[in-house]
Design a protein around this nucleic acid. Structure first.
Lengths: 338, 338
DNA sequence: CTGAAAGCGCTAACAG
DNA sequence: CTGTTAGCGCTTTCAG
């Protein structure tokens, strides 16, 4: 075992409590004593044993960020932001990969992990409102990104319906009429996909365009592979779409690939738009038009809210926070080349 | 605070030690007692306080994976594998983002974190052999991916020089003669880049091709942006290259984008190859030829080695393990379309 | 401003 | 097979 408080208390000829106060800076300590202690700390290379501290304090300093897929760049980018923010607030963030699995999500909400972490940021995809309400664990929870509303927990997300409206309006504005939705969920899972699909329908309606069920392509998962496959289905239609709105950038990128392979021109034959603004989309050929959520805001706010709840700081603002988004027009809908 | 051992000891009318034994299964416990204890555990919803356990055991059950950039899909994919493997062995993996910063790496090697984690998997980019040898912290360390050899620590990586040879041989085999290297490090940092550059030179030599310094493009970092910028420099040469070997897939993808913007055809005018086999490369236009490391092997082996060191299990096999790689030919060097 | 002492919850000897 | 007990290293009253 390493150097302990006791070791340096002896070395500096003071009590444990004094050393603790020097290390933590809680209570004022005489200048001379402080220096002696500091010197001992430096000489012996002391650093506090966090397990002991946590045991005593009843907190671990760990918060978890649970996301459905680490390899989705959107979540990697979000995680990077959240890790930084947590570190700045003195917390260590551990990532949990739920792999979009309901059991994994439930286990995090209630399982044994709850003893290890002071709080949880969860991006739920399988778990619904009822299960969140049923939660027994008492530590703070912040929800991000999906549509589990009306719970007693903080929830930070973009307005999925409004984002879809913006995407469709853009496609309509550039003259498209047969607009497909790519990435409808198989069951009634994945709230955000339901919401985006709803936004799609509403926006078609608002534009006076008919809703055509055959233009809604289901995917099993939301990655490039599925986007490509489902785009293939759409291209096989008698009257294929002249535009595609992807549930996220990943499926949209898969769609771009399918279009390239099929020899279709983008955007001339088919325009494509996604959501997330992941970096791949800025470097593809063509580059991908997208709805860009404010990841910085989501990541930082989620961590700050969680930490505030953990520490009992009064929290201002509503439980549900809608973060801003903006449309970034790129080549896939006829935007600029650079 | 939650339910403690003591609570359930009282409830079940047994001693603390017995409860502990039931929970941990260390020592045999009578069937009747075990049942009573188990029942109390279930009724009260007990789960052990890990801080206390860690304090007592002197271990935390946490291992850290420190990588230079979480938003590089290569590392995200690797992290996903490592997290899974660690969970299977009863450890929680926390990700540390060094952001390719030397201070961050040194802090992890020796800093305060060392008290929190049982062991560290580090992908060093700035820190060299000397600094690794100087390390004072005593907990186990496994190095991955870069070229810090001849240390007393386990090291798992592909053979960078051999990988470069394979890449260049491929470009030569498809008839290229003016082959550029994209992603030379600015200083003498980033060992792996040095090694890949060395492999590049050796392979040119072996193929009887001259080494032309102007075909080595430096980048400041190793992302898409820098790849694109540096490719622009190469295109501005009087005699631009007919092939580009990128330090990794990310810079290669940036190069592809630069080529598209410049109206060059790939692979007809310029062939492109990278290293890493990230998923983006499989869905770009054109798709990217690459050297694919065995990420599964690297991620799993790194965790297994580390855990073995932590637990004092005898470790077989050499300190430095070279994991296999293979060349995957795609459109960017004239490979198949699907 | 500083010290003494209690105890967070758990595990691992050691006794029985 | 079960119980008792001594800490792991730290923070935090409470006294001085």
């Amino acid at each position: 075992m390493g150097v302990s408080l006791k070791d340096i208390a002896e070395r500096a000829g003071v009590s444990l409590a004094t050393v603790s106060n020097v290390v933590n800076g809680y209570r004022p300590v005489g200048e001379r004593t402080r220096q002696r202690v500091q010197q001992a700390v430096d000489e012996l290379g002391y650093s506090p044993n966090l397990s002991a501290r946590h045991l005593r304090r009843g907190r671990t300093g760990l918060i978890a960020l649970a996301i459905p897929e680490l390899t989705n760049p959107y979540f990697a980018e979000l995680a990077e932001i959240a890790i930084r923010e947590a570190a700045g607030l003195g917390y260590t963030l551990v990532m949990e990969n739920t792999a979009a699995d309901g059991d994994a999500e439930r286990l995090l909400l209630d399982g044994s992990r709850r003893q290890t972490i002071d709080g949880l940021i969860l991006s739920p995809v399988r778990v619904g409102r009822a299960e969140v309400l049923d939660r027994r664990a008492g530590n703070p929870l912040v929800l991000i990104g999906e549509g589990v509303y009306d719970t007693p927990y903080d929830h930070i997300a973009i307005d999925n319906v409004a984002a879809s409206h913006a995407a469709i309006r853009h496609l309509v504005a550039i003259g498209r009429r047969r607009i497909a939705f790519l990435g409808a969920p198989p069951g009634d899972d994945r709230q955000s996909a339901q919401l985006r699909l709803r936004g799609y329908r509403e926006a078609l309606d608002a534009a006076g365009l008919p809703f055509r069920p055959q233009l809604v392509a289901r995917t099993d998962g939301f990655d490039r592979t599925e986007g490509r496959r489902a785009m293939g289905d759409l291209l096989a239609l008698d009257e294929p779409p002249d535009a595609v709105f992807g549930y996220n950038d990943l499926v949209a990128i898969g769609a771009l690939r399918a279009l390239t392979e099929a020899g279709r021109r983008v955007p001339e034959d088919v325009a494509v738009i996604g959501i997330d603004d992941i970096e791949d989309g800025r470097y593809g050929n063509p580059t991908l038009t997208t709805i860009a959520p404010d990841k910085e805001a989501i990541g930082r706010l989620a961590v700050r809210r969680l930490v505030a709840r953990i520490e009992g700081t009064p929290v201002t603002g509503p439980l549900t926070v809608q973060t801003p988004f903006r449309l970034i027009r790129r080549e896939s809908t006829g935007g600029p080349t650079t």
